[in-house]
């Protein structure tokens, strides 16, 4: 190593270090360069299409199970029964946000647009069970029983209307069948 190279090394080390230190000093001194967002007090404005936690408007949900089918991770579980007016009635609609991957596929396919991403993102919880969102507060079994009762009543009513023309033993059999159907609708639990 020649002397020139040796001195060059030293000079280069000093100048490049000084250059770098000038930049860090500028950041250190200039308060405008600070980009910190003091989170609990200041918040980042969430853009319109943000894919936060899912929310299902159960009033407009038709229980078509499109979301369940499209979900790649099975985080949506849905139970429904056929109501008296032939429409599906939601018995339970749970989303496991601890398993959800927030891909938004379910929102895209939802026909009545009842399933939507909210802008919520904070839901730290102390128990794993808390991560399952229940959108229907009522117990699924109760709903099912109620709907089954309604169906049975409707069936009985329809049968009663029919019974006006038909023989009596037939109508009693129909009623029994309706009751059986109601019993089948009972939850497994």
């Amino acid at each position: 190593m020649g002397l020139k190279e040796y001195m060059n090394d030293i000079v280069e080390a000093v100048t490049t270090t000084a250059k770098g230190m000038r930049i860090t000093a500028r950041y250190g001194v200039d308060p405008k360069e600070e980009v910190t967002l003091q989170y609990p007090e200041e918040r980042w404005e969430i853009p319109a299409g943000y894919r936060g936690f899912l929310n299902n408007d159960v009033k407009t949900c038709t229980a078509c199970t499109m979301c369940v089918k499209v979900c790649p991770v099975d985080c949506i579980s849905l139970e429904s029964v056929r109501g008296a007016d032939k429409k599906m009635v939601l018995a339970s609609y749970d989303i496991n946000i601890g398993r959800c991957m927030y891909c938004g596929l379910c929102v895209e396919v939802c026909p009545p647009k009842s399933l939507k991403h909210t802008s919520g993102y904070e839901m730290a919880s102390v128990a794993r069970g808390e991560l399952i969102l229940h959108f229907i507060a009522e117990d699924a079994a109760e709903i099912k029983a109620r709907v089954a009762r309604q169906v049975a009543e409707a069936a009985v009513k329809a049968e009663a209307a029919k019974a006006a023309d038909l023989s009596s033993d037939l109508s009693s059999e129909a009623a029994r069948a309706a009751k059986e159907e109601a019993a089948k609708g009972e939850p497994k639990k």
Partner: peptide
């Protein structure tokens, strides 16, 4: 437990 995939830094 913090839900999110991935959770935002705020979360």
């Amino acid at each position: 437990y913090i839900p999110g995939c991935p959770p935002r830094p705020e979360a």
